[in-house]
């Protein structure tokens, strides 16, 4: 299972005065089971990129391959693709609409043409996965807390049994506890359900903490792509395109500039703290 984008262009309002190139010559491969973060300032093309993956938007030029098949081929089923690549929009809880939690989660799989038995089974399983207990399944989704609503919305996508989850700012507006819950859930889905996960984020700290790979976008182009420890070495370049490095990386970098023996790949709280502690202990040992 992989997703491949070849020379993809996406142009809004082609032929009008407002013509804008939202994506420029994107070449990208996402392998099965990857956990990929996408960063970029507002309007850099991140959300458009996500929408291409399940065929919600169609590339103006270029091709998108899912498992080696061109999704723009005539005999390719977009409906199946939309079940395989689950797209989770920003603030997905705004799209909850059913009377009860369970009905809302069943809506997706029922629409995909699954049997009532499958629909029910998958909905129950999805709610269990996101940690919504049985006592809540017959409750109106509108009575739940923000964090719970978000998880119900996520369950609605999971119930369609996707292979890929593409999430647009999955933790926006959630408090730290709600945020940790969502990321723990996504990590578990990656490991236990073999899902491939892509998420757009504005938080460099979240990328450093959770992503195995980070794609950096600027003005419709991919400017950096790699393991977060490597990508966050480009502090100056990221600053120039309106982004940043995690606070922990900033501290480690400025200490190194001051001549501290701190390695260049500290990007999380633990990594920076451990490096400083090691420096301190080495120094103490040296003094003795």
């Amino acid at each position: 299972m992989s997703i491949r984008l070849e020379n993809v262009f996406y142009i809004y309002g082609k032929g009008t005065k407002e013509e804008t190139c939202a994506l420029k010559k994107i070449n990208l491969t996402i392998e099965k089971n990857e956990f990929v973060g996408i960063i970029g300032h507002t309007g850099s093309g991140k959300s458009t990129l996500l929408r291409l993956l399940n065929g919600l938007e169609r590339a103006t030029e270029g091709s998108v391959y899912y498992n080696g098949k061109n999704i723009y081929d005539k005999d390719f089923s977009m409906k199946t693709l939309r079940g395989k690549v689950g797209l989770v929009f920003q603030y997905p809880e705004h799209q909850l609409f059913e009377e009860t939690v369970i009905k809302d989660v069943q809506f997706g799989p029922a629409n995909m043409g699954m049997t009532p038995l499958e629909t029910e089974l998958f909905a129950f399983q999805a709610l269990k996965d996101v940690g919504i207990g049985e006592e809540l399944i017959d409750v109106s989704p509108f009575l739940l807390s923000g964090g719970q609503k978000r998880r119900v919305a996520l369950a609605g996508v999971l119930a369609m049994k996707p292979e890929v989850l593409a999430l647009d700012e999955p933790v926006a507006g959630l408090d730290p506890e709600g945020k940790e819950n969502i990321f723990a859930l996504l990590k578990r889905l990656q490991k236990e359900r073999d899902l491939t996960i892509l998420f757009v984020s504005h938080s460099m700290e979240d990328i450093a903490e959770y992503a195995d790979r980070v794609i950096v976008m600027n003005q419709g182009e991919i400017v950096l792509d790699g393991e977060p420890h490597k990508v966050f070495r480009y502090q100056k370049e990221l600053g120039q395109i309106g982004l940043d490095v995690p606070v922990s990386a900033k501290i480690a970098n400025s200490l190194r500039e001051k001549g501290f023996a701190i390695p260049g790949d500290c990007i999380t709280v633990d990594e920076t703290a451990d490096a400083v502690i090691r420096w301190y202990q080495d120094r103490k040992r040296g003094a003795v």
Partner: peptide, 20 residues
């Protein structure tokens, strides 16, 4: 209260715990 300390404070806390 369901909040998290800022990363700088978390680093300081770890350093304090290690005796810095």
């Amino acid at each position: 209260c369901g909040l998290a300390l800022p990363d700088v404070s978390r680093i300081v806390q770890k350093l304090n715990n290690a005796g810095l």
